[in-house]
Amino acid sequence: MKVIYKITYPNGKIYIGSDRTDSRLTYFGSPSKELLDRDFDRADLRDFTLRKQILWESDTATNSEVFRRENELIVEHGANDPSRGYNQRPRHRPATPPQP
């Protein structure tokens, strides 16, 4: 089973990733350590709860289909917006205000 999941951190920020090896109980993705270190210090880690939700799953999808859907969900949920999440790809493109 291939899955795409969302991890929610105590500060409300999210990370969306995929698991193509069916290790959903033990795999929590690989967000940037540097980004996490900016938001959490050692004291925060003394009692730290993550929430993992399965957003999508498939028994038949190819790896490229999983990657495409993962990117769609990252953008849809805003996980690549540094103020909302920890995904660094696809690169966040802030909306530009209309020109007068």
Rank of each mutant, 00 (worst) to 15 (best):
I54D: 05
R93N: 04
E57G: 02
Q88K: 13
L55Y: 03
Q53D: 15
I7F: 02
D59T: 14
K13H: 14
T96A: 14
Q53M: 15
A43S: 15
K6A: 04
E65T: 07
I54N: 13
T26L: 10
T60N: 11
G29I: 08
R89W: 09
Y27W: 07
Q88G: 07
D22Y: 12
I74K: 08
P100K: 11
D81Q: 14
G29W: 08
V3A: 04
I16L: 02
K13I: 12
T26K: 10
L73C: 12
S58Y: 10
H77M: 11
R93C: 04
M1H: 07
V75H: 05
Y86D: 02
F40W: 06
D44V: 06
E65M: 14
R91T: 13
Y9A: 04
R84Q: 10
R91Y: 07
S18Y: 05
R91V: 15
P82A: 08
D19Q: 08
I4R: 01
L55W: 02
A43Y: 07
P82Q: 12
M1C: 06
L73I: 11
S32Q: 06
I16Y: 07
G17S: 04
R69E: 14
K2F: 09
R42W: 08
R91E: 13
P10D: 02
L35R: 09
V66L: 06
Y5G: 01
I4L: 03
G78L: 11
Y5M: 03
L45T: 14
N63F: 14
D39K: 04
K2H: 13
G17Q: 01
T96P: 01
R69N: 05
E34S: 15
T26A: 07
R51H: 05
Y5I: 02
E76I: 10
Y27D: 00
G12C: 10
L73Q: 09
I54Y: 13
V66M: 06
R46G: 14
N87E: 02
E76C: 07
R24N: 05
G29F: 07
G12P: 03
D59V: 14
A43V: 08
D41P: 03
D59R: 14
S83Y: 06
Y15S: 00
M1Y: 01
D19A: 04
E70M: 05
N80R: 02
N63I: 14
S83W: 05
E76V: 05
L35D: 09
R91M: 10
N11R: 06
R51T: 02
P82G: 11
D41G: 11
R51Y: 01
N71W: 09
Y27R: 06
T60H: 14
L55H: 00
D37Y: 10
P90V: 13
T8Q: 09
L36K: 14
M1K: 12
E34A: 15
S30N: 15
P82L: 08
F28Q: 06
S23Y: 01
E34M: 06
S83P: 00
G12F: 02
Y5V: 00
R46I: 13
Q88L: 13
N80A: 05
S23K: 12
K33S: 11
R93F: 04
H77W: 12
Y5R: 02
I14N: 02
R91Q: 15
Y15H: 07
R84P: 03
E65K: 11
T49E: 01
V3L: 03
E65Q: 15
R89L: 09
Q99F: 05
L50T: 06
L50Y: 03
S58P: 00
R68S: 03
Y9S: 00
G29E: 03
